[in-house]
């Protein structure tokens, strides 16, 4: 791995940790319901620097921010770890198989969908164990995930455009 890549991963991870930690301070009606704003950074890392960078950023983000928040190895950590890894994996696989098919919005939607699916699955396996309770919140999470996914995708698209324009024409 080149030192430039390391720098990029470190910088993106720092942004992602800050966003993730701040998001955790916001109150939500359902536990583990998050806006997923940190996914913007994962999306940017994926589309600009590839799958490995995106996965590194996600792993660093989930682990370090859970240590900062104080949920490391707790239920919240398990949920966000599984959600983050599966959404990054899904986005990475789709992006490397069909790089032209989806734009940032579509990839962000896929990420949100898999994040929710993984979290619901983990919640069912570990904590709730009542298929009814899981089914009841599924449409709500799906709809919220779709809305936040579109918003994150648009912001991510702007960010990607901005960064790639800046790196093509360095301001000197």
């Amino acid at each position: 791995m080149q030192s430039q890549d390391k720098l990029r991963i470190a910088l993106l991870s720092a942004y992602a940790i800050a966003i993730h930690s701040f998001e955790n301070l916001l109150p939500t009606p359902i536990p583990w319901l998050r806006l997923g704003v940190a996914n913007i950074i994962t999306l940017t890392a994926l589309m600009l620097y590839g799958f490995r960078a995106a996965m590194m950023v996600t792993l660093i983000r989930v682990t370090l921010s859970s240590i900062f928040i104080g949920t490391f190895l707790g239920p919240g950590f398990i949920m966000s770890f599984c959600g983050g890894v599966s959404s990054t994996a899904a986005m990475g696989i789709i992006f490397s198989l069909f790089p032209r098919l989806f734009g940032p919005v579509g990839l962000s939607l896929i990420g949100a969908l898999f994040h929710n699916a993984a979290q619901l699955f983990i919640a069912y396996l570990l904590f709730v164990q009542q298929i009814k309770a899981v089914l009841i919140v599924t449409p709500l999470l799906l709809l919220l995930g779709t809305i936040t996914g579109v918003v994150n995708g648009i912001i991510g698209g702007m960010l990607i455009k901005n960064i790639s324009e800046k790196s093509l024409n360095p301001p000197r």
Binding site: R100, L101, F102, G103, P104, V105, G106, L109, V150
Partner: peptide, 11 residues
Amino acid sequence: EGMTLADMLLL
């Protein structure tokens, strides 16, 4: 323009 057809269909 940034949204592809697949994006819209998925949405």
